[in-house]
Write a protein that binds this DNA or RNA. Sequence first.
DNA 1: CCCTGTGAATATTTTCACAGCT
DNA 2: AGCTGTGAAAATATTCACAGGG
Lengths: 207, 207
Amino acid sequence: MLNDHTVERLIIYNRILKNLYKNGQKLVTSKAIAQVLSNTSAQVRRDLSSLGRKGKTGVGYDIGKLIDDIDGVLGLNRKWGLLLVGAGNLGRALFYYPGFRREGFEFRMIVDKDPRKIGKKWSGVEINSSTALRRKIRNKQIDIAVISVPADRAQEVAERVVSSGVNEIMNFAPVTLNVPEGVNVRYVDLALELENLSYQLAVRKKR
Amino acid sequence: MLNDHTVERLIIYNRILKNLYKNGQKLVTSKAIAQVLSNTSAQVRRDLSSLGRKGKTGVGYDIGKLIDDIDGVLGLNRKWGLLLVGAGNLGRALFYYPGFRREGFEFRMIVDKDPRKIGKKWSGVEINSSTALRRKIRNKQIDIAVISVPADRAQEVAERVVSSGVNEIMNFAPVTLNVPEGVNVRYVDLALELENLSYQLAVRKKR
DNA sequence: CCCTGTGAATATTTTCACAGCT
DNA sequence: AGCTGTGAAAATATTCACAGGG
């Protein structure tokens, strides 16, 4: 089990490596990776060493092998099925976000409570009501539920999804979800990200 | 200058506090805040102490005052003007995201290069081409540029925005931007967030 | 000679634990 | 009695620096 910081950096290294590979490069040094991210080469080596001994002393890392290893650790060497709950503006943006499919994340099901939306299709995936969620989820092989409903409905939706057997949630609603032990929630709060920038701005203006 | 972790937690405390305040609560203890986030009360006190001495010994914190202080530190006691670059699905979702306006972030300008979109309005804000960006930006009081264009156009857009005088960027494109010293970029990478979940799932499946 | 992998040193962050205020 | 604010200890994370492989 790697620590969180290492995992986050591995994800970023992986993206950088895939770019280099696409441009035909086969080898890379820890220093080169570090430069892109302006961190230290020691950090990169330490992170990569958590994958086992992979580099070639005096030469660097074989990009192709490294990508395979990182993909393996991150679980990106297979497909994951997604359920989208909430087909609003944000839901649509997520559904059509090209980065997901590219990394193996596939929306297999869309749920919304607005009767005007039910029955419509996005790229062939029909928008459903949330009745009989459990049965539908089993048929569709859902690994992760993506919640993009308003804040005041997120808790209820989460409970529903969990009781239907999904244990991984990506939550875009700006509330802390109360979930049973063993359910994993990842929060993405867009306003929170802007507030971080706001802090930087506030500090800057004060100088 | 506070450290990053503290700032991120302050943002979350702030949200929790605003919720409590809305429900009529006037006082709160470090322990109560910690419980919501399942971290320790010592952590909460340490974070809050960076605002100066604010709690009442033996009693707790005055929620109203605490919110004002945190808002002040984060720069949320004023409005910030946003420029949206890229009026696609993600751009639209961001524009209409309710959390931004609530925290004082206001989209004042939209730019897109698709001629079919130019001239249309979203909630009264017209979509423009990016010609004469510098002049337009000055008139509109833009503090932060929100970039939601495809990955391969992000760098060029960033350069344009920076040369027009914007120093804070929130980048949704999955690429590292190369910007001059003094320009602050905050990255939000949706795929990256999912990859974190994927790692958790991968670890789980292996057990 | 150049770059990895890693012990050891350093720096940073979190937690403990308690004096002191109300 | 209850809770804050904070030194000091503990835990984590990062960087240094160098032995060793190619």
